[in-house]
Design a protein around this nucleic acid. Structure first.
Lengths: 160, 160
DNA sequence: TAATTTCCGAGTAATTTAGTCAACTATAGG
DNA sequence: CCTATAGTTGACTAAATTACTCGGAAATTA
């Protein structure tokens, strides 16, 4: 589980797709223009996204890309693992080198943290991101007359 | 909020420190040997960790580094932001370029996701990581005779 | 057939990672 | 005071990754 600008580009592009879901194929040229991402870079990213079966492509005029699944079924973790090939994550590859307990201890600790982050990002779907955005927009309007309601719980329990 | 191997190194090194917390200063040479990270690279990382006031140093023989705060007060987010200088995160820097609604929409969406991940990693402390490791060790022993209890809830509600 | 748009591979500049090297400062112990 | 230890700093570098560009196919619509 890495979290780089590369994954950020992919998530942004997929969000662009999600916002136009149901309106037919979306061209990379359009995404490129709207999101300010180079067309060639998008081609590389969407090659991976297609091989990961997150999007489907239609060639020719009027073609483009569509989500291969519903927005609920596509998570940020899916997108990131599709474009960021997995890091080996450990200094002791398979299980060699892991002699003393100390080395294995921090090794396992990191593996656990990694898995936990992955589980978390698996729950963040395109659907929830779009929903959060809508909620935020109305909240902003409320804030103008209510001036900050309760500040507790930044994210409403698994909402994102 | 980035999540790279650089941050991984820093977290691993800080965990090594956390496991020896209270036993006096820990040398980088020791961390280097135990965690298989080059000494010079650790010097760079700990320079940043010290400037972020996450660790304190003691020079001279018997010296080394100690945690500047309790393990509860140091989060993974703290460590990562200390060593991974912040990404600008947006294609439209401050607020220029943000003309049409669409661009701002996905822009905000990513900013929100970013903040959410940051909030989450702020709750993952060195203390909880060490505690999780201990819990896992006893769980592994239990599994030997119980053969997988309930698989639900990978992480016990904010435990990590 | 012509225009559109996805596919595909090779190449590349800029950046980041991970590390080396050398010199310097502080300090404990003899 | 001397010396070994250990942090502190800065400059430099090889390798990898990022973020592209370019050129050309292949498929499909009109």
């Amino acid at each position: 589980m890495r979290l780089t600008t590369k994954g950020r580009f992919a998530v942004t592009a997929m969000l662009d797709l999600a916002l136009r879901h149901g309106n037919g194929p979306v061209t990379l040229a359009g995404i490129s223009e709207r999101q300010s991402i180079s067309l060639s870079y998008l081609e590389q990213l969407f090659g991976k996204l297609r091989r990961a079966e997150l999007v489907e492509s239609v060639r020719g005029p009027g073609g483009g890309y569509t989500l291969a699944k519903s927005t609920e079924a596509i998570s940020v973790a899916d997108i990131i693992t599709a474009v960021d090939e997995p890091v080996d994550a450990t200094q002791c590859g398979g299980r060699e080198n892991c002699h003393d307990n100390h080395r294995c201890m921090t090794h396992d600790l990191w593996t656990n943290l990694n898995a936990t982050i992955f589980d978390y990002l698996s729950k963040v779907t395109l659907f929830s991101l779009v929903a959060q955005q809508h909620a935020k927009e109305t909240t902003v309007m409320q804030d103008k007359r209510e001036a900050q309601p309760q500040r507790a719980r930044v994210t409403p329990t698994g909402a994102l």
